[in-house]
Design a protein around this nucleic acid. Structure first.
Length: 585
DNA sequence: GCCGTTTTCGGCCCGACTGTTTTCAGTCG
């Protein structure tokens, strides 16, 4: 069982226990354990095989450790099987419909026999739902709308695709008179690869301005439906299905609010616990003295110690500023306490792009255009890496075509002394792990990228051996998009990444963080594993035109999520160092 | 169910909004 499957089982078990009315803290324990297992860079299966103590995993104690072992050994969890015979699995989806939680889902099932979203819809249409205690006519109507949205929008949106939607919305709110600040928080600010919704935070200079901002928000042309609105919060659904929440706060609370609404949830929980340990309490309004006794209003329950900026709050809690990309509850608070936060790589550190295409294969811009665009970006170097001949549909290059390309390349290089153009190729890894270019020509290249573009469904042993063989070739420098995933469309192929990473380390091969918004491969979690193994990472845009070179920013943000500093990023290094790495010296 | 340089028992993050109530539970983020 993979970590993902183990986490899914634990989460499902938590769902069913929630529906059964179990203790909410026990449920939280299962969810925490599931989330932490998903973040693990080692497979639980190999931890068990290696005799490691599973209770070392945060959130995993004696009981869950035992259940993990059972699942790995037998492929199932008896307690889960038993519970799923009492409670219909469809109810877990009913629970995901907005406005319905475990309590209401459970009531609809016991009273009306609702065991699926379809049955819920039918009950609501027939007006039976509103008869139940806890339900009423309004809730019944809103549930029908929620079901529609639920069916339309079950997937998270890719970050790179919603940037162009979010930016103009934020810009238009900033134009409202009296809007002092409008910022995006949430997973968007943490630059998570996909986002479920958008959280906006606004500061108004008066009540009137606050109302005007909310008004501009709910009447924005792209809004399809207003889901709710109050003094400080409103939310809407855009025409493309994206949900956006807006909070309007006073300037005094801005830092606290930004911190709180940026999350992540687990980062916040840790921060709040840290505050409680000091006899304070942290809310979206600020850090306050006292632990917020029951019945006290949040703003009157003690002296406000910090709230204006995130820096103020972190400082008061004894921490340096933690970058949003790191706020995932992956040990960043502990690292901050110990003064061991890395200095994260920045876009300005990037000196070149080592993965791009031209019209010589499937790119849509000439070499010259790509070069000009790279120079505009201030790069010192670039690698032209068209496809090799196995990818016939892209017009991939064979030895003869490569020779002709180099003639053009020599001319362009001579005419543009401002940037160094490395002769590269993205060479296909063939089914048996050999490369799609002769050794003689591989040696002539300045830089050799290798990629899997075919035979995605080989058995894991075969796929792993194939990739290990490829990166073990002495001329290979970078392993591109190592898992082959396409966000929201295709899982990566089955491969033992740890084994491939080890082969990369032994052969001085860098792994790529493919910055294409559709790939982001390696993912942040896999990048963490690569970093821990001491691998060099190359952030490549895989650009097929000048515009896509801008994907570098998204790539850098993902690298930051994996705590990478510029020393660990190949294309943040000077050309001489890059050449040294490529020569394997 | 997990966790602990104030604890091995008794805690476990916090507030807003909605719809249902008639003082609050459920849900959400």
């Amino acid at each position: 069982m993979t970590n993902a499957e183990l986490a899914r089982h634990l989460d499902l078990f938590a769902d069913l226990q929630e529906l059964a009315g179990e203790n909410r803290f026990r449920i939280r324990a299962y969810r925490t354990a599931a989330a932490n297992i998903l973040e693990l860079s080692d497979q639980v299966e190999s931890l068990i095989a290696g005799g490691a103590d599973l209770e070392e995993i945060p959130g995993v104690g004696k009981d869950i450790a035992e259940k993990l072992e059972v699942m790995v050994r037998t492929g199932e969890l008896p307690q889960l099987t038993e519970l799923s015979q009492k409670i219909p699995l469809g109810l877990t989806e009913v629970m995901r419909v907005k406005g319905i939680g475990p309590k209401l889902a459970s009531a609809a099932w016991t009273e009306l026999g609702v065991d699926s979203v379809d049955a819920l819809e039918k009950a609501a249409q027939e007006g039976r739902l509103s008869e139940l205690p806890g339900f009423g006519p309004k809730r019944q109507a809103s549930i029908l709308k929620s079901i529609e949205a639920h069916r339309r929008n079950v997937e998270r949106a890719r970050l790179g695709e919603i940037d162009p939607i979010v930016r103009p919305l934020v810009e238009s709110l900033r134009q409202v008179p009296g809007a002092e600040r409008v910022e995006v928080a949430g997973s968007y600010r943490r630059r998570r690869e996909t986002v479920g919704d958008i959280d906006l935070l606004a500061i108004a200079d008066s009540h009137k301005a606050a109302a005007a901002i909310s008004q501009a928000f709910t009447t924005y042309p792209d809004v399809d439906e207003v889901l709710g609105s109050g003094d400080t919060r409103s939310s809407v659904r855009l025409k493309n299905g994206l949900e956006v929440d807006l909070r309007v706060m006073e300037a005094e609370s801005f830092g606290a609010a930004l911190l709180y609404f940026t999350g992540s949830k687990s980062h916040n929980v840790e921060l709040r616990q840290l505050a409680l340990d000091k006899g304070w309490h942290l809310t979206e309004y600020g850090l306050f003295e006292g632990t917020g006794e029951e019945g006290e209003s949040p703003l009157s329950s003690g002296k406000r110690l910090a709230s204006k900026t995130e820096e103020d709050i972190y400082a008061k809690l004894g921490l340096p500023y933690i970058e949003p990309e790191m706020r995932e509850g992956r040990g960043e608070i502990k690292a901050a306490q110990e003064g061991e936060l890395p200095v994260l790589v920045e876009l300005a550190d990037i000196r070149g792009d080592l993965h791009m295409h031209s019209t010589w294969s499937d790119g849509r811009a000439s070499i010259e255009d790509m070069m000009r665009a790279c120079m505009e970006r201030g790069y010192e170097y670039m690698a032209l890496t068209d496809h090799s001949k196995a990818l016939a549909m892209t017009g991939g290059l064979d030895e003869e075509k490569l020779a002709r390309q180099w003639e053009e390349l020599d001319e362009i290089t001579a005419a543009n002394p401002g940037i160094t153009l490395l002769r590269g190729l993205e060479v296909d890894i063939l089914k048996d792990g050999t490369l799609d270019l002769s050794d003689e020509w591989l040696e002539k290249l300045d830089i050799v990228l290798v990629s899997v573009h075919s035979h995605f469904s080989l058995p894991i042993e075969e796929q792993t051996a194939r990739m290990v063989k490829a990166v073990s070739h002495p001329q290979v420098n970078i392993l591109c998009h190592p898992t082959g995933r396409i966000l929201g469309a295709r899982e990566g192929y089955a491969v033992d990444l740890a084994e491939v990473f080890e082969a990369c380390r032994e052969n001085q091969v860098a792994v790529e963080l493919n910055a294409s918004y559709q790939r982001l491969d390696l993912s942040d979690v896999n990048l963490i594993a690569a970093r821990k193994r001491g691998l060099m990472v190359s952030i490549g845009t895989d650009a097929h035109n000048e515009k896509e070179l801008a994907g570098m920013e998204l790539g850098v943000q993902q690298a930051r999520r994996a705590w990478l500093s510029k020393e660990q990023v190949l294309n943040a290094r000077e050309l001489a160092e890059v050449r040294k790495f490529l020569a394997k010296k």
